[in-house]
Design a protein around this nucleic acid. Structure first.
Ligand SMILES: [Mn+2]
Ligand SMILES: [Mn+2]
Ligand SMILES: [Mn+2]
Ligand SMILES: [Mn+2]
Lengths: 218, 218
DNA sequence: TCTAATTTTTAGACAAGTCTAAAAATATTT
DNA sequence: AAATATTTTTAGACTTGTCTAAAAATTAGA
């Protein structure tokens, strides 16, 4: 069907597309994929031939309907595999990304269908990211950045903005995990740091941390 | 580490090596891998450079110690994944090979270790083939071809010689499965067909079938 | 608006893995 | 032991995906 390289480009465009509303730029893709702009241009031309993207020279690129379906299916596989690794094989959430990057390219519709059933059709992966369904639809929950909560407001921790190993390990060390209730006790105007209550502990977190955590209001 | 192509060649040589005692020929590898002899030669030269095989022009090829370790590790992964698909995801034994061909190339030592634990360290895959341990050692059981049993002898069905979908589906249809006790009731000298008793049913199987089933004597 | 900086594309090269066709080595027959 | 047949290797080409360096287009600045 499609090569791993093609799927990776499609996935990168999909991820960048949601953030910027207009066409995704060559350089942005190059940066995301740790590659050179000229390589990106080459691939965009191939993907355009195959009608997976809409591409006009110098004008950036957008996924076609077909491209979007493929992207969603790859993301679905990535997140289901991450869920498998954490829920069934005792991996921690900071170890699974690179392995899922490989597993997401395995070709077998039945495999992914059965995996989803085995995992009891999860809607979110270990990082709180939504898992597209078979039709590519995302379950939408209204999550907001923790930093936007007012003092005395609280929410359930449901996701991370940054899912790098470094950040995830930091959260582990601080005892912060998905599903926990977080209440903002105080906000420090000087550096925008927050004092929060979590699992009956009080804890101060920097503005940067508060911008990388998602909470859901009840 | 090693590319999928390299791993596939190594695995093919490993499989052919056990059958023929001397060096494996270029043509044999080409046939097994559904490729051309010239492609095989190219690859053998690369593998030789990397010290994974011992290769002398026109003299056939053998795995080095390093090559054997890699082969065993790929076979281990292949068979563990097949076991996973059958035992956990409800695949039948005739559906798993092609998917395992892909999964066997996923790079992560922890993944395969945890998978083995999750599956409770199986020693044989769904086709009765032995799963190499972490050190590449094979559990040896003494299995013999069903056709070699004498009349009134019996054994437990423990493996297949041919593991093509066609044959496996045929066995399903006949109600023959691993673990069942098979007793030879009669042998027909005319066409070497066998009448066997299996699970209280009597059944006639051709010489060809009898040569593709392994049994273990008690 | 015209020039300068930045972004994007093209041109040409390279590595991996494959193929066909031809040459070389080995094996088999007579 | 030659002649013939078979196997194996080489030579040259092609595809995919990548890169560097240079050219072209776009954007930003004075
Ligand atoms: Mn991930
Ligand atoms: Mn994730
Ligand atoms: Mn198999
Ligand atoms: Mn098998």
């Amino acid at each position: 069907m499609f090569s791993q390289a093609e799927e990776n480009y499609i996935k990168a465009i999909y991820a960048l597309d949601t953030k910027t509303k207009k066409g995704v730029s060559t350089n942005l893709i190059a940066e995301k994929m740790q590659t050179k702009a000229s390589s990106v241009t080459d691939m965009l031309q191939k993907l355009s031939e195959k009608r997976l993207v809409i591409y006009k020279k110098y004008q950036g690129v957008q996924l076609s309907t077909k491209g979007k379906k493929i992207a969603a299916s790859v993301v679905r596989k990535h997140r289901l595999w991450e869920t498998f690794l954490v829920n069934k094989l005792n991996f921690s959430w900071d170890e699974v990304h690179d392995i899922a990057e490989q597993l997401e390219h395995i070709k077998s519709e039945k495999l992914i269908d059965e995996l989803a059933v085995f995992l009891e059709n999860p809607t979110h992966d270990p990082h709180g990211d939504p898992i597209p369904d078979k039709n590519g639809e995302l379950p939408s929950i209204e999550k907001i950045i923790l930093a936007t909560l007012q003092v005395n407001e609280s929410g359930i921790c449901v996701g991370v903005q940054d899912s790098s190993s470094k950040f995830l390990q930091f959260l582990d060390k601080q005892g912060i995990a998905l599903g926990q209730k977080i209440t903002v006790i105080a906000k420090e105007p000087f550096d925008d740091s927050l004092t929060i209550k979590i699992e009956n502990r009080e804890l101060s977190i920097s503005q940067k941390i508060a911008h990388n955590l998602y909470v859901q209001l009840k």
